[in-house]
């Protein structure tokens, strides 16, 4: 009996250690963002302190405000999401529901595009965008983000489209509705949930992207993931401010992640059953 109790206790301890390990870096950033720079630098690290919004106030409204960068991140992510969904919904519907020659190959092609390493995409694109003056522009970044958001969105949506019963479409055709009308009026409302989940993940991936952003951003368009570098330098790190920026950069994705909690496994493994995956 004591042996069993000991085992239960050990397992409980292990699980607590892992929970803490996963939550700690995030919680610790939140705590540090509420400190003054002096409290943040204290040694040993302070767990008890008087919380203050000072760091947030500074990074949002101070001289080196990251507000424009948050706006950049938002415009890029929303823009990518809108363009991706407009292209991915029709494509996914065709791949899931229609009969045409080369369908298998088309599906394979979408998966294969994810094999290309991002650095292999950004080198040629940098040259092209430099030539047409699209470096440091929203259209340049959003265009290149389609390279990863489209395959992902198409496959995730296909899995939702496949779940709708065929009878619904047939009934609509028999009533004389056109194909486009059927898609818009009958099918799309059926996959509203799937579309919402896809929107969440596309937004999340666009918000988190870094490699393309660091190459293509400049003084006009610089997302927050790139801009946070300004708070760390060899001479001096602005600890509380860095923590505040990190928390602001994490906030939207953590909220979305918790909201889409039930769908996260599906979102993370999409396409994997049929082939590759990315991020």
């Amino acid at each position: 009996m004591t042996g069993k109790r000991l085992r239960v206790f050990a397992l409980l301890a292990i699980s607590l250690v892992f929970l803490l390990a996963w939550a700690f870096p995030v919680l610790w950033s939140v705590l540090n963002s509420l400190k003054t720079d002096r409290d943040a630098l204290a040694y040993p690290p302070k767990l008890i302190f008087t919380p203050t919004w000072e760091a947030y106030h500074d990074v949002l409204f101070g001289s080196a405000s990251i507000l424009p960068n948050l706006v950049s991140s938002m415009v890029i992510s929303v823009g990518t999401t809108v363009v991706t969904m407009l292209m991915a919904i029709p494509a996914a519907y065709a791949l899931a529901r229609l009969r045409f020659r080369g369908k298998k190959f088309a599906g394979f092609y979408v998966l294969a595009t994810q094999m290309l390493p991002p650095v292999g995409i950004i080198i040629p694109y940098f040259l092209v965008l430099r030539n047409i003056g699209w470096i440091d522009t929203y259209q340049g970044i959003i265009l290149i983000y389609l390279s990863f958001s489209l395959p992902f969105a198409i496959w995730l949506l296909v899995s939702y489209f496949e779940d709708i019963p065929f009878e619904m479409e047939e009934a609509a055709y028999l009533d004389g509705a056109s194909r486009l009308r059927t898609l818009w009026r009958i099918i799309i409302p059926q996959v509203r949930g799937g579309i919402a989940v896809t929107v969440v993940f596309v937004f999340l991936n666009a918000w988190n992207e870094f490699l393309f952003a660091v190459v293509l951003s400049g003084n006009t368009v610089r997302p927050v993931t790139v801009a946070m570098f300004n708070f760390v330098s060899v001479e001096q790190t602005l600890w509380a401010k860095l923590a505040a920026v990190s928390v602001l950069a994490m906030l939207p994705v953590v909220v979305l992640g918790v909201v889409a909690q039930k769908h996260i496994v599906k979102g993370l493994t999409v396409g994997a059953v049929k082939g590759g995956g990315r991020r």
Binding site: V26, N208, M250, G257
Partner: peptide, 29 residues
């Protein structure tokens, strides 16, 4: 467990890297 496990995977690797470089791994601090 499911809730906490979501935290790391939704974060940007850039932000994760920055937090670890400073608040987790900086010498002494």
């Amino acid at each position: 467990f499911r809730l906490i496990a979501i935290l790391p995977v939704v974060l940007s690797p850039a932000v994760v890297g920055m937090i670890w470089r400073t608040f987790m791994l900086a010498p002494e601090f």
